[in-house]
């Protein structure tokens, strides 16, 4: 296949950026989207040009490194898939594909399609954990966890911290990401002692990072490669309001 690409090129955080046209030749339908970018980059290197910078690592949809906005949709058109899991057979010969980075104030562009998502790490640092030191844990089966609760905790825990939810949200809100972690820990007995402190601290950190607020549009859920439900956002709201009422 031959494809016409319009790729966002930006030399650095402060540099101006623009969409640049490239032609991707010799694209095989079985290639993944990032492999297609590899091919384009090989060509650019041969022509002595600067290759397109993009993040990727596991290339199987689990590490959360990859991610760009493909024809206006984060991670592209496929449901439940990351950019590295999108295959070129989804496109047709001669298609034009616009590729942009995830955009948000809290995700400054590092270069081209690479953005700095460390704000999400800082949200976790604010409370996305259970405080337990190595060695201090009780025997694992002392606390039974109802299977359904364990399963729904797992549903939320699948988040790969890719940031597509932020990219898709018209407000660049990190609610789905934050809510997923709060729900993961909040559903388990192990997460109860810190449940309310956690939600308050994480929400405050989220605001501090410059993410927007949630208008309940659910674009995040639709693009989330792990199909994490916005029901988790409602849950976060509830926990937060309870925390506010409980505060002395």
């Amino acid at each position: 296949m031959t494809l016409n690409l319009k790729v966002w090129r930006q030399a650095g955080a402060e540099a101006p950026g623009r969409l640049v046209d490239y032609v991707a030749r010799g694209i095989h339908p079985d290639m993944s989207f990032v492999e297609m970018l590899d091919v384009v980059n090989e060509d650019l290197i041969r022509q002595g040009q600067d290759p397109i910078a993009f993040d990727s690592d596991c290339r199987e949809g689990i590490c959360g490194s990859c991610g760009c906005v493909i024809n206006g949709i984060p991670h592209g058109p496929d449901a439940g898939a990351t950019t590295c899991q999108l295959h070129m057979r989804r496109f047709r010969d001669g298609d034009t594909i616009v590729i942009e980075p995830f955009r948000a104030r809290a995700f400054p562009i590092v270069k081209d399609l690479v953005v700095d998502r460390s704000a999400l790490d800082r949200i976790i640092a604010a409370g996305g954990y259970v405080s337990v030191n190595a060695g201090s844990a009780p025997e694992a089966n002392v606390v039974p966890v109802p299977r359904a609760e364990a399963e729904s905790a797992m549903d939320a825990a699948q988040c790969i911290q890719c940031g597509a939810c932020v990219a898709a949200c018209k407000n660049a809100a990190a609610h789905l990401f934050t809510a997923a972690k709060i729900a993961h820990l909040g559903r388990l007995p192990q997460g109860q002692p810190e449940r309310y402190v956690r939600v308050v601290r994480m929400v405050e950190q989220m605001d501090e990072e410059g993410f927007g607020t949630c208008s309940n549009e659910g674009e995040c859920e639709a693009v989330c490669p792990k199909s994490i439900s916005i029901a988790n956002i409602a849950r976060m709201h509830r926990d937060y309001l309870k925390a506010a009422l409980l505060a002395k």
Binding site: K6, N71, I73, E100, G212, N216, E221, A222
Partner: peptide, 24 residues
């Protein structure tokens, strides 16, 4: 919310092809 995304997308589509379909 406007400030949270100072740079707009050049192309932005609603995630219609996805599942679940959003409430947008």
């Amino acid at each position: 919310n406007q400030a949270a995304r100072p740079d707009r997308y050049h192309v932005r589509r609603w995630a219609r092809t996805k599942n679940p379909v959003s409430r947008k």
